Computed example of a mutant assay.
Amino acid sequence: MPYVVAVYDVAVERNARALRLFRRYLAHVQNSVFEGELSPAQLAELEAAAAALVAEGDSVVVYAMRTAAYHERRVIGAEKGSPSPFL
C-alpha cells in the first residue's frame, strides 16, 4: 500500500471541510499536513474528493511513496501530531 503525505492550502471558508476530508483518510500530523498508508482505491477517492473541494487559488499536494519502508520521518522541534491514525 502506498504511504502518503498530503498537504493542503485552501481558503479559510474551505479549511474545515478540507480538514474533515483529510482526517477521514490520513493521520493529522501538523496543521494542514497528513500522512499514512492508503490503498490505491482510497488514494484515488481522496484525490477525487480533494479535486472537488479546491477552488481557484487553493492547492493540495500529495506525495505517494510505494510503501512505508521507503520513507524516513524526522521531526525537528515539537511533535504536533502522530503519524498513527489511532489515538
Rank of each mutant, 00 (worst) to 15 (best):
S32N: 09
S82C: 12
R23V: 11
Y3M: 08
A64I: 11
A41Q: 13
Q42C: 11
Y25W: 09
H71T: 11
Y8L: 05
E35F: 10
Q42V: 01
N15G: 04
G57I: 06
M1S: 08
H71K: 13
A51Y: 03
A52V: 08
L53D: 07
S32H: 06
S84V: 05
A49F: 10
A68R: 03
N31Q: 13
A27F: 14
H28F: 09
E45F: 13
E47W: 04
A44Q: 15
A51V: 03
Y8I: 05
R20N: 13
L46P: 03
L46R: 02
E47N: 12
A11I: 07
A48R: 15
R73Y: 04
Q42F: 10
Y63E: 01
V12W: 08
G57W: 00
M65G: 05
L43P: 02
R73I: 02
E37Y: 08
L87N: 04
F34L: 05
E35W: 05
V5W: 04
V61G: 01
Q42I: 04
V61L: 14
Y8P: 03
V33I: 15
L87I: 14
H28A: 04
A52T: 10
D9N: 07
F86M: 13
S32P: 07
V54D: 06
R23K: 15
V5G: 00
V61S: 08
V5R: 00
P40C: 04
V33M: 13
P40E: 11
G77A: 05
A68C: 05
V60L: 01
G77Q: 05
R24L: 15
A78D: 12
S84Q: 07
G36P: 04
R66G: 08
R66Y: 14
V61H: 10
V12T: 06
A78P: 11
V75M: 05
A49C: 13
V29C: 08
K80C: 11
A49E: 15
R24H: 14
R20I: 04
L38W: 06
K80T: 01
G36R: 00
G36M: 02
R73F: 01
Q30L: 13
A55L: 14
E35P: 03
R24M: 15
V62E: 04
S39Y: 14
L21Y: 07
F34C: 03
L26N: 00
G36H: 01
V62D: 04
P85W: 01
V7W: 01
V4G: 00
S82A: 12
F22G: 02
H28P: 09
Y63A: 02
A44K: 15
H28M: 02
P40W: 12
A68D: 03
A48I: 02
Y8D: 05
A69F: 12
A18F: 04
Y3E: 03
Y3F: 15
D58L: 05
R73L: 12
D9W: 06
L38F: 13
D9S: 05
I76G: 06
Q30V: 08
A48S: 14
